[in-house]
């Protein structure tokens, strides 16, 4: 069985849980620290989605365990919680320092990003070449899938 792993990290546990629940065929494990979902692609290929706590300073052995076959990371945060973005920046920086894998930074906006007025999208930010920024609504299955497609596209681009 071929396995691709995607780690979903971010400061908000419930957002990660909802994200993974919305796209997995089955939830294999769920605890306070971890949600592990499995998405079967075909008889030889499966995607493991890990919603894990990621700490910039100190990570549990669990982190190394789930990061052996990583395709990339989704860094998820709630757009409404402004302070959490500082943590997100640190996470992205730290993840990038470990492994140059694609990262999709996903800002969860209930109801979708279209509710935001255009003037909210004016500040440009330099992101590394392997980082994408996008909005999503973790309660919406299509929105969650879109995030994963963005990540997979970035992985394909990386190996091209």
């Amino acid at each position: 069985m071929r396995i691709g792993e995607i780690a979903v990290v971010g400061p908000n546990a419930s957002a990660k849980r909802e994200f993974i629940r919305n796209v997995s065929d089955e939830i294999v494990v769920q605890t306070d620290d971890l949600i592990f979902g499995r998405l079967r692609i075909n008889n030889q290929l499966v995607v493991h989605l890990y919603g894990v706590n990621y700490s910039v300073e100190n990570n549990s052995p669990l982190w190394d365990l789930v990061s052996q076959k990583l395709l990339g990371y989704v860094v998820l945060f709630n757009w409404s919680q402004q302070d959490s973005y500082i943590e997100v920046q640190k996470m992205v920086d730290s993840l990038s320092s470990i492994k140059q894998l694609p990262i999709v930074i996903a800002a969860n906006v209930p109801g979708g990003a279209e509710i935001l007025p255009p003037e909210f999208l004016e500040i440009k930010m330099n992101l590394q070449a392997h980082c994408e920024f996008t909005f999503c609504d973790v309660s919406n299955v299509d929105s969650v899938k879109k995030i994963l497609v963005t990540l997979v596209d970035a992985v394909i681009e990386k190996i091209a």
């Binding site: 071929r2 396995i3 691709g4 796209v23 998405l39 692609i41 075909n42 290929l45 995607v47 190394d64 990061s67 052996q68 076959k69 990583l70 395709l71 470990i98 492994k99 140059q100 894998l101 899938k145 994963l148 497609v149 997979v152 596209d153 992985v155 394909i156 990386k158 190996i159 091209a160």
Partner: peptide, 19 residues
């Protein structure tokens, strides 16, 4: 951990298609 993608392009395209 290493810095490699463990799936090949065709497998990634399968994931994409499934999604």
């Amino acid at each position: 951990i290493s810095n490699q993608i463990h799936l090949n392009k065709s497998e990634l395209l399968m994931i994409r298609e499934k999604l």
